[in-house]
């Protein structure tokens, strides 16, 4: 899990770094504003959907794979409490990844001296806010991954969902339905990439539905499901 988190944080930081290096090699000057935008876009478009889905799937399905689920569910706790604890523990896990990525990316920016624009604290605060918003919105999508992992009792389908989310999101981003699709809505809400199609009310409604429906499904399914693993 720790390695997954480290790798998950390192990968987007490296990707952003390579994009910046590539730009400089093509005589494009380094700009902090562009560098920050790129960070949020890469995180929102590529890394968060795939990585968070994998991490959440792993958090939930691992109990079945290690057969520790029997012990968890035969304790004096309700099944809902067990599920809720998983969602709670997901917060520091996802927060750590996001924070580490942010710091690595930020540090990476200082490797490029002679930026055209000046690095300002307000720029940093704006960037940090976008990362927080992205984390919050991506966290709202975790119940789908959790539901998939619980249904198949494996993190592989959750990982598949993450990859599907990345690909489908890129396709939907080209259309006018950005705010109706949870992963593209997340990205547009956090980055405002397409301001003309950025309807916050539609976006947040989409997010709320996508968050609540899987949660209700998990609550109903997991409470009733027979647990055979182990």
């Amino acid at each position: 899990m720790l390695w997954l988190m480290l790798l998950g944080a390192l990968l987007p930081a490296m990707l952003v770094l390579f994009v910046a290096v590539n730009g400089i090699s093509h005589d494009e000057p380094f700009r902090w504003a562009y560098y920050f935008d790129m960070q949020v876009q890469i995180m929102g478009m590529l890394m968060c959907p795939a990585l968070f889905s994998l991490l959440i799937g792993y958090l939930f399905a691992r109990e079945f794979q290690e057969r520790t689920i029997n012990n968890l569910l035969t304790g004096p706790h309700s099944r809902l409490a067990v599920v809720a604890s998983k969602f709670i523990i997901a917060i520091p896990v996802l927060l750590s990844v996001q924070l580490l990525t942010f710091l690595l990316m930020l540090g990476g920016g200082f490797l490029f001296p002679g930026a055209v624009d000046a690095f300002t604290w307000s720029m940093l605060a704006d960037e940090a806010w976008k990362f927080c918003l992205l984390l919050l919105l991506q966290y709202a999508l975790t119940p789908i991954s959790a539901a998939v992992a619980l249904l198949w009792r494996s993190y592989i389908p959750a990982m598949g969902l993450g990859i599907f989310a990345v690909i489908s999101e890129m396709i939907i981003m080209q259309s006018k339905y950005i705010m109706y699709y949870p992963w593209s809505a997340t990205l547009n809400l956090a980055t405002n990439m397409f301001p003309d199609r950025n309807s916050a009310s539609i976006g947040y409604t989409t997010m709320a539905i996508v968050c609540v429906v899987p949660l209700l499904f998990i609550a109903a399914y997991f409470r009733r499901a027979d647990v055979h693993s182990g």
Binding site: E66, R67, T68, I69, N70, T74, G75, P76, S78, G230
Partner: peptide, 19 residues
């Protein structure tokens, strides 16, 4: 029935642990 499970200990089939 959660409270009553406090009085019970069990090992079902294969004891799973965090490796």
């Amino acid at each position: 029935s959660n409270a009553v499970l406090r009085k019970v200990g069990s090992v079902i089939e294969y004891p799973g642990f965090y490796p």
